[in-house]
Design a protein around this nucleic acid. Sequence first.
DNA 1: TCGCTGCTATAAATAAATGAATACTATGAC
DNA 2: GTCATAGTATTCATTTATTTATAGCAGCGA
Lengths: 300, 300
Amino acid sequence: MNTMTEREPSWEWYRTFLKVLETGSLSAAGRAMGLTQPTVGRHIDNLEMALGLKLFIRSFDGFAPTDAALELKPYAVSVATTTAALRRVASSHGTGVRGTVRLTASEVISVEVLPPILAALRNEHPALTIELVTSNKADDLLHREADIAVRMFKPEQEALVAKRVGGIEVGLHAHKRYLAAYGTPKSIAGLSDHSLIGFDYESAYVRQFQKQFPWFSRAALAFRADSDLAQLAAIRAGFGIGICQSALAAKDKALVRLLPTQFSIMMDTWVAMHEDLRQSARCAATFTALVAGLSAYIKS
Amino acid sequence: MNTMTEREPSWEWYRTFLKVLETGSLSAAGRAMGLTQPTVGRHIDNLEMALGLKLFIRSFDGFAPTDAALELKPYAVSVATTTAALRRVASSHGTGVRGTVRLTASEVISVEVLPPILAALRNEHPALTIELVTSNKADDLLHREADIAVRMFKPEQEALVAKRVGGIEVGLHAHKRYLAAYGTPKSIAGLSDHSLIGFDYESAYVRQFQKQFPWFSRAALAFRADSDLAQLAAIRAGFGIGICQSALAAKDKALVRLLPTQFSIMMDTWVAMHEDLRQSARCAATFTALVAGLSAYIKS
DNA sequence: TCGCTGCTATAAATAAATGAATACTATGAC
DNA sequence: GTCATAGTATTCATTTATTTATAGCAGCGA
């Protein structure tokens, strides 16, 4: 019951706290925020005083965050994403489709599929600004890190409104040039003689995938990349045989689909957003455009 | 690509914005925050300028929030809950179980069951401060509105760690005095001649309940309260026949269990918290104490 | 109708936060 | 080693924000 209520720390201090964590120094944080180094330092001092703990260990080449600071960081990040979402909502106020909408999608989708869809959307709504984040994180819609997401799995959170736009077919592909030089595999077993391109990281999805197709194990891969876009580039460059969307490959005459009957995966594709955002003109319009554009892409 | 980047609004402005929304006036917000009215007014002006929209319609008896302000409010609330969570984490730093832990539970649990458990916990950890919020909202753990929740249903969110502590039996009860005056019902059908006590609000749970026990419909109730605690008080006061935990009723010799074979509901009881908080000594200790205390209560 | 209360708006006085300049320390390149 | 660079800590002048004080308006009750 401390009646002598020590005041709540200024929320602004959290902002500079986060920037110092991100940049690693008072000076850099100051530059990033349009403040000076002494000011940033004082904010940190104030916050440390208010919270009653040391957040950084002072040294001459940057601050070293303490365990406490790292423990608090996720909360500061959460505040930052929330205020960013608030500003997006604010920017959209007025009549018509306007303001900023923030999307997430995988790299391949972002680079190969979305651009024409977004260009058309923007053409229709010139007052709309689009932010595109390449990410596969599942939880960023609930925390308003993005407004709308294109996902390759069914979103399960109940607070989300999600629409399935169809299945994207994924298959084995290689460049003509590669096949001319190293031959065309006639069976799955024949793949072991080839340069395979695949995932580097270990996600739940990749693990399940490798369980289903054990010949595609990590050890068998000659080229590993955590970016599906880099894998696609490797296929296009004739490095070897890899997995990519067959619709993308079909647009490039030099790419050849391999073993289509033995290997084909349909990836369910969904567009999802927070249900609260249905009220928002900018999000509703973008959602509709994404659903329509992706459906057309899949059917093509 | 506006290079002339208009600065991000100070996060502090969001705080006063929220307080103005909550209090309804600049002056009241100022009083609540330890600021003066002109300061609060300028914060709002600044925020309106930065966001480029009117947040309040000025009048002489308080501000009237615009639609835009109401639309932004949830985001400001989210920031407030996040900073509160941050401060709880900060307060717990150090060795041992210390700091503030925030719980939610239903009213009856909060008032009738938890106090001795929490008292023992506090006795064991004198540096621990406890906040108890009576609420049944399902989503407040993910948004860190509370650290730990006692729920009557299985938490489904995957980011939560939940432990079932058993089933709490709920049955029909009445006070001796009431039964002496109006008789004891011999069957479910006989209840229609009695004063029934039940829910006022319509929740999914209540709807399902009334589907299962149609004789307990809203129209049949002589006393309706949205508070289960008020219902319990009505039973104790001899108003009529109502539903409450049989374990609670058993502790009061004046209360009588009615039709125990015909009417008995087991309510699954869970303790849940965000999985990240397992690392936190204060939360882990409280979680354990709640699980142990509630299990003991249920078995008794 | 008057006087009270509570609110916002505005202007001058004051307190507080910020910025500029500087000293000092560590580090890495030459 | 020496110099250049990048960082923090500190001091003091300055700008900025906040308070204090004041005026005006609306609602309410006597």
